[in-house]
Computed example of a mutant assay.
Amino acid sequence: MPNESKRLSSAGWADLRHREGAVMNYYNDVANNCTYGVGTLAHLGFCSAEELQRPVSIAQVNAQLATKVRLTEQIVRSNVRDHELTQDQFDALVSFAYNSGESGSRDTFVAANSGNNALVASNMALCVYVHPRDAQGHRLPPRRVNGLVNRRREEAAPFKQGVR
């Protein structure tokens, strides 16, 4: 497998931390899911009043981030086995999958595995919607998030280099 030894680079770590931000307590993300730290999902649905008061430590955030990054790296490696990625492309796919999840990244992985960089960038650009939840936890209609538009532009950039 051409990507089996790849790991998120130092620049990739910095980019991921910047894109995700770090919040040292529990909060409701743009989809109304209880989240903390560097985009770590605590659970689907709103945080309880107790959770919103709960601080998290830097050690907790860093441990959760490291665990999720290692898992996401493995997901990228196992889904892109046939086409060698550049380090920048690997970093971008890790960032994308960290945010979109394995199932939300599936079509993008298929395109990357076949070496279709233009389709990778196109698929990434489509993933700018979230499904917020109401107070009962039901999914609401999708909502476009401008922050995701900018993030996807950054993540797609390594796949656009040299593509006409």
Rank of each mutant, 00 (worst) to 15 (best):
R164A: 15
R70D: 06
A157T: 07
K6L: 09
Q161I: 09
D82K: 11
A112Y: 00
A111L: 05
A135C: 15
A22T: 10
G137Y: 07
L126Y: 08
A125K: 00
G21L: 13
A49L: 14
S105M: 05
D107H: 14
A125R: 03
Y98R: 02
C34R: 00
Y129M: 07
G162N: 09
S9L: 08
L140W: 10
P141R: 13
R77P: 02
L16C: 11
S9H: 09
A121N: 01
S103C: 08
G39A: 12
V128Q: 06
N33S: 06
A157M: 09
Q136M: 08
N62K: 12
R17L: 12
I75S: 09
S5V: 14
A49P: 10
E73F: 03
A66N: 13
V76H: 00
F109M: 01
Y26K: 03
Y36L: 07
Q53P: 04
V56P: 01
A11M: 14
E51S: 11
C34S: 05
R133L: 11
Q64Y: 04
V56A: 06
R7C: 12
A59E: 13
A125L: 02
H131I: 10
D134N: 07
L8F: 08
Q161Y: 09
R81F: 03
E4H: 11
V110L: 13
Y36N: 02
V23S: 01
Q87E: 05
Q64V: 09
N62G: 10
G12H: 02
L85G: 00
Q161G: 05
R139Q: 11
V130N: 03
A14I: 04
A111H: 02
W13R: 13
E73Y: 02
S122Y: 09
A66R: 12
T72D: 04
L93P: 00
L8E: 04
R152L: 05
A112W: 00
D88K: 06
G104F: 03
D91C: 03
I58W: 11
R143M: 15
T72N: 02
V149Y: 07
S105L: 04
A156C: 05
R139M: 10
V145F: 06
P158I: 13
A121S: 10
N25M: 03
K160Y: 09
R143A: 15
G104T: 02
S114N: 12
G39T: 10
F96K: 01
T67D: 10
S57F: 12
V110A: 12
S48Y: 13
G147T: 00
N146H: 12
L93W: 02
R143W: 13
S5Q: 15
N116V: 08
L148E: 01
P55V: 04
N99S: 07
I75G: 06
T67S: 11
A135I: 15
G12V: 03
T72G: 03
V23F: 01
